[in-house]
């Protein structure tokens, strides 16, 4: 069985699944719109949690939040189910496909056989759509891939029940009610306010303060942990930042694209010039990644090199602080 689902590639998995599922249900919404209205831009530094043996930095909110916020702000209804038993999870998915409902799943990346080996880490907040089933395979639309793909029944079961942080527990989700007329304007304003609040939050590990905190830590890494570990930390940071459309530069460009669309909908010229500014900040994130990569490529031992990238990062934090203050003012 197969549903008549259309695959569109996206930069980020959760945006892509949300946008593709909503398009299937008759609501034409772009990836940047999903990202913006779902308040996908975020920053949090969690030095006490280690991912791949390095301190955790997340550039996005908790898995599922983008779609949930988007749904709330646009008045859509999404059904989400987690499962304790594998058999029930399979049964529920198969029933959905029988009912012609393409279904979003949260999955672990480690057993995704169509990913190159190097990309298969224990990361459990990936999203994809299952749109059909054959004797041996499930038909998969993974939004970060150019085209549709497949997983065997056994493989899909494994990725749905991956373990570790954010274990998906078979989670599946799909829109059950999509109104024909949605009010984009008020949703956009609410979403922008939310993102400004997050990025300007008065907590030391969140938003621009979090970015500044990381910059300060980077200066200490080579002294405190030695060059080898410091290089590993920096490499991990760049990976989390730029891997498959997530994080630093990539997210800024998606957000800038959102502001451009929002400027037209709200008829607000200020958002247009702010979009330009966000693009420039995104470019600086990419410059940071380039310079950081030089450090761990050359296994540079000078503490000076670390100070240079730390300076770049705290400059970005300053620019973003000013940016989000202006953005807040632009919509109020």
């Amino acid at each position: 069985m197969e549903t008549n689902f259309t695959h569109h590639q996206s930069a980020h998995c959760e945006n892509g699944v949300a946008s593709n599922l909503l398009k299937h249900n008759g609501l034409n919404i772009s990836e940047p719109m999903v990202f913006g209205i779902g308040s996908g831009l975020f920053f949090v530094y969690l030095p006490f949690i280690k991912v791949n043996h390095a301190p955790a930095i997340s550039y996005r909110p908790l898995p599922g939040q983008i779609f949930n916020k988007l749904a709330k702000r646009l008045g859509l209804k999404i059904k989400r189910t987690k499962f304790a038993s594998v058999a029930n999870a399979n049964k529920a998915l198969d029933q959905n496909l029988k009912d012609n409902i393409p279904t979003g799943l949260q999955v672990g990346v480690y057993n995704l056989s169509y990913f190159p080996d190097e990309y298969r880490f224990h990361f459990n907040a990936h999203n994809l759509v299952v749109y059909g089933k054959t004797e041996t395979d499930y038909l998969i639309s993974d939004p970060v891939m150019e085209t549709v793909t497949t997983l065997t029944h056994d493989e899909l079961e494994k990725v749905r029940f991956a373990k570790g942080a954010f274990a998906p527990r078979g989670q599946m989700y799909y829109p059950v009610n999509v109104p024909t007329n949605v009010d984009f304007s008020s949703a956009i304003i609410k979403a922008i306010k939310n993102t400004c609040r997050d990025m300007l939050a008065p907590a030391p590990i969140i938003g621009v303060r979090g970015i500044r905190f990381v910059a300060k830590q980077i200066r200490k890494w080579p002294i405190k942990h030695g060059t080898k570990k410091a290089n590993h930390y920096l490499a991990q940071m760049v990976r989390m930042q730029e891997e498959i459309g997530t994080g630093g530069g990539g997210f800024r460009f998606i957000y800038a694209a959102f502001l451009q669309e929002a400027a037209a909908i709200l008829n607000n010229e200020k958002l247009k010039s702010l979009s330009l500014e966000m693009t420039q900040i995104g470019d600086l994130w990419r410059d940071f990644a380039v310079d950081a990569s030089r450090i761990y490529k050359n296994r540079s031992t000078q503490a000076d090199a670390y100070n240079t990238v730390a300076d770049q990062l705290s400059h970005i934090a300053d620019l973003e602080e000013a940016f989000f203050k202006k953005l807040k003012a632009a919509i109020s």
């Binding site: 940047p32 990569s293 761990y296 490529k297």
Partner: peptide, 23 residues
């Protein structure tokens, strides 16, 4: 105007990934 484009890869990312694979 914003649009999309496909990328085959980016050196800083490639180095970061091979760094973790070496690790």
């Amino acid at each position: 105007e914003y649009t999309t484009a496909l990328s085959t890869g980016w050196e800083p990312k490639t180095i970061a990934l091979s760094n973790s694979i070496d690790d």
